[in-house]
Design a protein around this nucleic acid. Structure first.
Length: 266
DNA sequence: ATCAGCACCTGTTGGC
DNA sequence: TGCCAACAGGTGCTGA
């Protein structure tokens, strides 16, 4: 479900709504929600949330103790602060000392919570962020050099670049006029530069519109985003390209639906 | 290194 | 109307 813009929207909202609050009670309704590589959920009892931010596609809670909680929402995970009614598919809840709660609901049960000490980036293995100032066109071009994997598949690999998912990979490649199936290493320096600026443009705009609610994404307050109305290619198979009117094609790359314009993208 | 295939899960949708 | 297959914003593992 959520990619960088959706996770950013959720993290920003939760930073305001749960920062400074103290956990007094943890309910785990689906044990596998808690990643066994990290600490047990009950260790959160008594912790106070210092802040909330995004790391790649993780919602990262920084605790006053120095510990961290990384929540990955995968396809259908939702983090809702102080819900007014019980949520369906609730898998884990943090009860706060003030009487409120942070509830994790996840229909498909793919989402994971990981509680750990130490450096989040090292712990989670996240690659460079698309908005990291150190990611220059030259740096991206260098990262792509020699890679024979398809550029769209490369964009989805979180160990290299962290935060881009299926929707925004399709959208950025469309904006940059690059075919999803070209080998990553074959992109020219100019194409790498176009791809980077397209990624930032589409991600920034999607954050502005509070994410894309194609199916069931909602933010930390339960509100949907608006960017799904702005999508240029994702989910538009068979519909006319907004630039040249050619029918948008859908193919499958790396087991994921992939949309592109066969005329605009080379 | 890379890829296809499958696993993890449930809910919704579209075709027949 | 009803059933079933396909599909879904993600990742991780295995085997080739």
């Amino acid at each position: 479900m959520p990619e960088l813009p959706e996770v950013e929207t959720i993290a920003r909202g939760l930073a305001r709504s749960v920062s400074g609050r103290t956990i007094r009670g943890v309910d785990v309704a689906w044990q596998r929600t808690v990643d066994p590589r990290g600490l047990a959920a009950r260790t959160l009892d008594g912790e106070t949330i210092a802040g909330v931010r995004r790391l790649g596609k993780y919602v990262l809670f920084d605790l006053r103790s120095g510990r961290h909680v990384a929540v990955h929402l995968r396809m259908t995970g939702r983090l809702i602060a102080d819900p007014s009614t019980a949520l369906p598919h609730t898998r884990l809840s943090l009860r706060f000392a003030d009487g409120g709660a942070l509830v994790f609901s996840d229909a498909r049960k793919f989402g994971r919570w990981r509680i750990f000490d130490g450096d989040p980036q090292a712990e989670l293995g996240t690659g460079i962020d698309p908005f990291d100032p150190e990611l220059t066109p030259a740096r991206l071009h260098a990262l792509l050099r020699g890679r024979r994997t398809k550029i769209k598949t490369w964009l989805l690999d979180q160990r290299r670049l962290s935060g881009v998912g299926n929707i925004y990979a399709c959208e950025a490649l469309y904006l940059a006029r690059i075919r999803p199936n070209v080998a990553a290493g074959r992109l020219t320096r100019a194409q790498a530069a176009a791809l980077l600026s397209s990624l930032r443009k589409v991600l920034r705009k999607a954050i502005f519109y509070r994410g894309s609610s194609v199916d069931d994404y909602v933010d930390g307050a339960g509100m949907p985003g608006e960017f799904q109305k702005k999508l240029a290619v994702y989910g538009r198979g068979g519909l006319p390209c907004r630039r040249c009117k050619t029918a948008i094609r859908r193919v499958v790359l790396a087991q994921r639906g992939t949309f592109f314009c066969p005329v605009c993208q080379h």
